[in-house]
Simulated assay, not measured.
Amino acid sequence: MATPTSARKVAVITGGGTGVGAAAALMLAGRGYDLLVNYSRSADEAQASAAACRAAGADALAVRGDVSQDADCRALAAAALARWGRIDLLVNNAGVSVFGPAAEWESLEAETFQRILAVNALGSFQMVRACVASLKAVQGCIVNVSSVAGALGVGSSLPYIASKGAINAMTLHLARALAPAVRVNAVCPGLITSRWFVQGVGQAGYEAGLKAYEAGVPLQRACTPEDVAEAIVWLAGASTVTGELVLLDGGMHLGGVQAPR
């Protein structure tokens, strides 16, 4: 393993160019981490994310890779090690889904189901496998970005729900399998106010969905990317926490809003 270039910790964040990934990268940059910001398509956004991290005092790289491909996952880990000689934190954030008519489960094509599982679930597994030796060497940790979909069985599409359920199960298994050397946790947001949902259902659909969501959960608000990033950063530093699936759903799992008394 290469010699670290500094005493700063190193985080690898998949899907780090936009939304939750970009927010987590910037927050970690301000807390002593250097960053490898992975992207598959959002090159300009990933470069901007890395530049923001550098402006916050971190060293940062934007590296393209499709996490559904094992060779790309190993290349991402290798790029971090070549630059810094260590990996302290892996944030498995890359994810895809389908929306609207394409998400109707009765007519879903196998290729669509397989692609979502390949990125969301298999990709997370492959990134863990690529980084695990380095994580063990520094008593590091993994934070998987899952979803309330995997806990409650609701979400944009059935393969998305299935993929997040798989991530939750893997989180629990790996927390046991990698202890005590590596901690493994997951964050499970509900609706997130990011462009990902807007791109999926359109502006009007997003606004209607957000209104309905906030009216139906006890805290009456959705997550921002920064809300999710705060939970990721907390888990990264919570040295006695492993095997947790942290629901960031405004209380959605409680079953709705009760009339005030």
Rank of each mutant, 00 (worst) to 15 (best):
T3G: 05
K9E: 06
K9T: 03
A11P: 09
V12T: 13
T14G: 08
G16V: 03
G17S: 09
M27C: 09
L28K: 04
L28H: 03
A29G: 06
G30C: 11
Y33P: 05
D34I: 04
Y39R: 12
S42V: 08
A43H: 13
S49R: 12
C53Y: 04
R64S: 14
V67T: 14
D70N: 13
C73H: 12
C73K: 09
A75Y: 10
A80Y: 09
A82D: 15
R86N: 10
D88C: 11
L89D: 00
A94E: 02
G95E: 00
V98W: 06
G100E: 06
A102G: 09
L108F: 07
E109G: 15
S124C: 13
V138Y: 08
C141R: 00
I142A: 10
V148W: 07
G150N: 01
Y160S: 00
S163D: 01
M170K: 08
T171K: 04
L174T: 08
A177D: 15
A179F: 11
V184T: 09
I192T: 04
V198N: 07
Q199F: 11
G202D: 10
G205P: 03
E207F: 11
A215M: 10
A215E: 15
G216I: 06
G216Y: 05
P218W: 06
D227L: 02
L235G: 05
A236R: 02
G237D: 10
G237P: 11
A238K: 01
T240D: 14
T242C: 07
E244P: 01
L247G: 10
P260S: 09
